[in-house]
Every structure is written in C-alpha cells, then in structure tokens.
Nucleic acid binder design. Structure first.
Lengths: 159, 159
DNA sequence: TATGATTGCTTGCGAAGTCAACTATACCAA
DNA sequence: TTGGTATAGTTGACTTCGCAAGCAATCATA
C-alpha cells in the first residue's frame, strides 16, 4: 500500500524548517501586534498597513487597486477595508479626472493624525517583539533574505 | 497640531523593513501555496499543517488542545478545522481513558495516505517558491533568525 | 467530602477576506 | 463608428477564524 515510508519524523520537519518558522512567527506576531494595535488605537494590522502606505505615498493618496496589490489584498478586500477607514473619517474617496474608472484613496488630515498617533506605539511594539531580537546586520540580512521571496503580483509593488 | 513631522517617506519604511517583508512574503506565499494545495488535493494550508503534525506525532495522534497550540490556532479554530478532516475520514476522535476531558485527534489510514500523497507535491511547491531561493547555509540562517521570534504560547510548541 | 479554580472542548456570533458575477469606463482595431 | 477586450471597482454568498460564553471533568484545598 504505502509505496515508501517517508523519512523519520524529524526529517519531515527539517525539509522545510524555515518555512514552518515563517508561518508560526507570522501567526504569533500578527496576533500579538494586531491585538495591541486594536486595544490602543482601534486599528487592525491591515488598517495600519494601509495607513502607512497612504502616508508614504505622494500626495498621501493611491489608486485603490494599487493599494490592494501593495498590501496583498483582493480588490473586494480593499473596498471593505477602506469602508471602515472612510466611516472613521481617516480616508476619503477622490475620483480621478482623467479616468472615470479610477478612484483614489486619500488620507484625510484626521487620518494623518491617526497614523502618527498609532505609529509611535506600533513601532515600539515592533521593536519589542521583532526588531530587538536582531542586531542591525542581522536585521538587514533577514530583510534581504525575505526580499528574495516572490510577491505574486509583484508588478506594482513598491515596498 | 502635529508635534513633530515624521521622517521622510523612505525612512518610515526602513524602520521595519524586515517585518513588512515578512508580512508580504507570508501573504503572497500563503496564497500561492494554499491555492495549489487546494487545487491538487482539496486541502488548505492549515489542513496540511495539521496533517504534518499528526503524521509526525507519536502514534500519529495528539490532544486537540496541543494541536491547536502547535499550529497557532484557537481552541474553537481547531474544533472547526478538525470537523472538516473528520468528515473526510482522514482524522478520527479518540477519547482519553484516563481523563474524560481530553480528546485525541488521530490520523486514520486514509489520513496517512492523504498526507503522503499531498506531501510530495507540496514539498515540491515549497522548494520552488521558497527553498530554491536560498543556499543551504542561508536556509539555516533564515530558520535561525526566524526561530528567535516569540511564539506566544510557546510552552507547548515543539516545532 | 464539599467547594472553588482550572482545563479541555464546543457553540453562537461577528469580523474579515475570497471568489464569482456584475457595472462602467477605457482602449484597440477593423 | 462599432465591437471586443481589458481594467477599476462594488456587491452577494460563502468560508474561516477569533472571542465570549458555557459545559463537563479534574484538581486542589480546606
């Protein structure tokens, strides 16, 4: 039946140890960081991610579709996420004059303030749970290694 | 109003570059790997993860709660995930004789077969999308760096 | 032995996100 | 101009998962 018994238990884990650790680290960190962000500012990790992108973008605005691709969310996902940020008054819609298909997501003044407020504590959280584990060189190294991984729709990615 | 303008756009990204890359890499890889696994075997990435754990466990069984902690899922999450695997006949419930609170999740013969079938193509996918990006040393290095990150409920973790 | 705390597990509910389907606009080519 | 295709965006149905609440069994302690 069983054509060939797979290697020992430990070997199975070894074969993709780094990938498994990436999975686990992501789950655990995401949960903890999201929890803190939610408690302190009422933002999910994705909300924050979108705010950073808009904050760093020229004119603090992006086409919704580019935003979706950057934070790796489906088009419908972005619609729904932005719905919340718009309801809170942190992001506004702005229609494109030259192409009626396009809508921009623009950070409002309130959104800028909200981001800057959340930014401080969130960076501290990342420092505590993530960055403090590595020296400067190690941090760069980790970023370089992770940067080699495929981002699927990488075409528009600007991170 | 704005007490202090935050550094330039690029600097904001720099401050947590590795973390952002971990987020993005996880999203993209997860989506691609899960898609392939689903298409080829009708399994989600988490389903697979649970199957690996059970396959590698002594007697191919684990207490449901330990399983949850290992794959970083809430207790209710494990109940629902296992529901699917049980319906498919790959996992069975086994009540503990010495402690009536405890239920084991046991891999059935069909489950073993299913895992071994999925294992082959999934490892190839991981190799293609993940492992092939790194040399042996780099892979170890990446695993080591990621291994330093906190796993929250790390108490029971055995990965 | 009785009582209170803890542990394992499940269920109701809600949040978040995907896919498929649809609309509207834009672009391209005959 | 018209017809076909691609792009931007939204919506509905569905899935997945966490939290809060609850139940049952166990353990600790008096």
């Amino acid at each position: 039946m069983m054509s060939q018994v797979l290697s020992t238990q430990t070997e199975i884990a070894q074969e993709h140890r780094a990938w498994i650790r990436l999975l686990r680290a992501h789950s655990a960190l995401t949960r903890e960081l999201s929890g803190r962000l939610e408690a302190a500012h009422g933002l999910s990790l994705r909300d924050y991610d979108v705010l950073v992108q808009l904050y760093s973008a020229p004119d603090r605005r992006m086409r919704r579709i580019d935003l979706a691709r950057t934070v790796i969310l489906s088009p419908s996902g972005i619609t729904r996420l932005l719905e919340g940020l718009e309801r809170a008054g942190w992001v506004a819609k702005h229609h494109c004059a030259s192409d009626a298909r396009v809508t921009y997501a623009v950070l409002t003044d309130a959104g800028v303030a909200k981001f800057e407020e959340a930014h401080v504590t969130h960076l501290a959280d990342i420092e505590e749970l993530f960055a403090s584990r590595f020296s400067g060189d190690e941090h760069d190294q980790l970023a370089e290694l992770l940067g080699r991984l495929p981002l699927a729709d990488a075409g528009t990615c600007n991170a």
